[in-house]
Each structure stands twice: as C-alpha cells, then as structure tokens.
Simulated assay, not measured.
Amino acid sequence: MLGRLRRGTAVAGLVLAAVLGVGSWTSADAQTPLTGPPPGSAEWVADTALGVRLPDPTNASPAEVAAFFDALAPDQQRQLAFRHPQVLGNLDGAPVPLRYLANSLALAQERAREQARATDASLLPEEREQAARKAARYAELTGRQLLVFDPRGRGQLAEVFGDLAHAARTAVLVPGSDVDLASSDRLAAMAKELRAAAKDQVAVVAWVGYTTPVGVGLDAAREELARAGAPRLERLVAGLAPLTGPATLFCHSYGSVVCGQSAPDPARVSGLVVFASPGLGLERADELKVPVWAVARNPEDWISNVPHVSVFGLGHGADPTSPGFHARLLPSTGSHGHSDYFAPGSASLAAFAALAATGSPTTA
C-alpha cells in the first residue's frame, strides 16, 4: 500500500512538473468559472408585459424556450429583444436571428458604456485604458453574427460563420486555454479556414462559451473549468439541433476535456474531433455514445510533453491518440505547433473539412 501511495505521489509530481514547466506558457492565474444565467435574468423573469410568464433562464430547457417563442408573434419576440438583449442573446433555444438582433443591441449598449468610462475623469488611468480597450473590441465585433455575447469577467461569445438554417451541416469549435472575448479572433480564424476548406458547405460556430484556463497552470491540469463549461456546451448544441441537425464538435487542447465531459447526445452531436489534446478525462473513446476522432500530434506540439494520467485530480486520463483509447486517427502532416492544425494545405485541415461536410474524414 505504501509503495503504491509513493508511486502515485511521484506520478502526481511528474504531472504537476510537466504541466507547470512548459516554457513561456506557464501561468498561475487561477480562474473562477462563469456560471449561472445571463445578466438581467431577474428583470426578465419579472417581466409580465406580454401577459405570459417568460421562461426562466436558470432552469428552462432549450426545447421549452423554443416552444415559448414559437407561440409568440414576431413583434412580441422583437419587443423582448429590445427590452432584455443580454438575456435573449444568450438564451439557448431562442430563434437564431432573434439572438443575433439581441446581441447586436447588447453589444452597442456595452460599447457606449465602456466609451463613457474611458473618458470618466473619476476613474483611475488604468481603468480608463481598460474601458477604451473593451470599447474598441466591441467596435470590432459590431455587425458580426453573434450567438452568444456576455461581457462579464473575461467575456464570452459565440460567432457564427455561414447560415445555420440552410447549411448542409454544422461544426462547433471548442477552444483551449487563453481564449476569451478579447482573443476570440484566433478561434474565428480557425472557423474561417474550416469553412473555406469545406467549400462553404458548412456553417461553423466559434464557441467561446466557457471560462478557459489562462496559460498552462493548475487550471489546465484540472477538470474544474471543463466541468463548468460542459453543461453550457450541452445547452448550445441542444438549442441548435432542431435547426441544424447534429453538429460535429472540433475540440482543441483543453477544449477536448470540455467536450469529453459534456456527455454528447447522438441526437445533437454527430461526433467529436480532438486535436492537440491532453486527454478527454476518459480512458476509452467508447465511454462516449458518439464517434471520436483524434489527430496525430505534429512533432512541434508541446502537448506531447504532458503525461496522460489522472492522479489526485491532476491530468486528463488516457492519450486519445494511443491504440488503447480506440479513437479513429486523423493525420496531421503539414501542421506545425500546438495551434496550427487548421493550416491551409495540411492533412489535418483536409480531414477536418471532409468530416465537417460529409461525416467522413475522406472525400473519396
């Protein structure tokens, strides 16, 4: 018993050392996950102007939300968007065009608020500078198709590329560490590459809808942020599935832990594609009810240095590219480093595009 304990402690130490020692990626910035309903939910629930009870964002399912909006006239739907943009813009199950409208209104409100703060002499200089940066970022996002917009904390959003209602298939990109509202264009660039490689047949959602780890520290070695993010991902795909059919999830790095924890439903998710993955928090792919594809790591991806174990709450389990995990393997030739698996001309992007468009990693 003592020997096993010592070996377990030694392995935990190796995991921690590896996770905390990956060069410039190291960070000790612990994150508190953003959970609960969107801002303004109390006012939404108290609103009786339409003479009906509005669905509670805390516990109403996407199906219940969809049924509620189906019973409203278009002008009633728009009234709610203008009165409660931050709630409606983030309400899974609400009509997609209505969410785009609501989020454009919420974005404009937040931009005006931050612009006012940027010139408020009562604030500290660093507070004014931060407000100016936020206002500039909100200006960059203006006019985009936003399915999620939540400015709290580091901020969350989901941006849609293509037409969810008419595309043949849908893909959802789930990011790893260091992606938030300010840096979401990195994920958006992957979405654009995937859509272009699939010859615009696929609608792509760049989903920054959970609190990601900052750097590669304890948050990245543990599953707490993934467990908090997984239900948010489940609600997203549950809200989309009646419109789009089952989506393919493309899960990068720590995002693969989120995908693994989300217990994907085959009626809503056609499969998972994991790349640069530290593990899914699972020992075998068949623990999930949907197909799992894992991309072979390119030689320059530092994730290869992270041990694939789970000890004392550290690590994310088996290597999804190992034979024992039983995932379906995809090539990575032509990609470089940890975040370049969508590189134009790479074998990984070609397989991603084929999977997104047809459900098969080859076009033959």
Rank of each mutant, 00 (worst) to 15 (best):
P74Q: 08
R137L: 02
A343D: 11
F325H: 07
V273S: 02
L72E: 05
E129M: 08
Y341I: 06
D120R: 14
G155A: 08
T248P: 00
A116C: 01
E193W: 02
V292N: 00
V87W: 09
V172R: 06
Q130C: 00
A197N: 01
T170P: 00
G21I: 03
A67D: 13
A196K: 12
A112S: 14
S270K: 15
R297P: 12
A102I: 01
A171C: 05
A63Y: 03
G279H: 03
F325C: 05
L124G: 07
P62H: 11
N90R: 15
L249N: 01
V15C: 12
G337L: 09
V202H: 04
D120K: 12
T211F: 00
S253C: 02
S322D: 04
L240C: 04
S253R: 07
S335L: 10
F161H: 14
C251M: 00
F342S: 12
P125L: 08
E287Q: 15
D219L: 08
M1K: 12
K289I: 04
T321I: 09
Q86M: 13
S277T: 02
V96W: 05
S24I: 07
V258L: 02
R99A: 05
E129F: 08
V290H: 07
V273A: 00
R235P: 01
D286T: 14
C251H: 01
L72F: 09
R186C: 03
P307S: 02
A327R: 14
A49W: 09
G143F: 00
S27H: 07
L54S: 06
D47A: 11
S339M: 09
R169S: 14
V204Q: 01
A197M: 07
T244Q: 07
A131R: 12
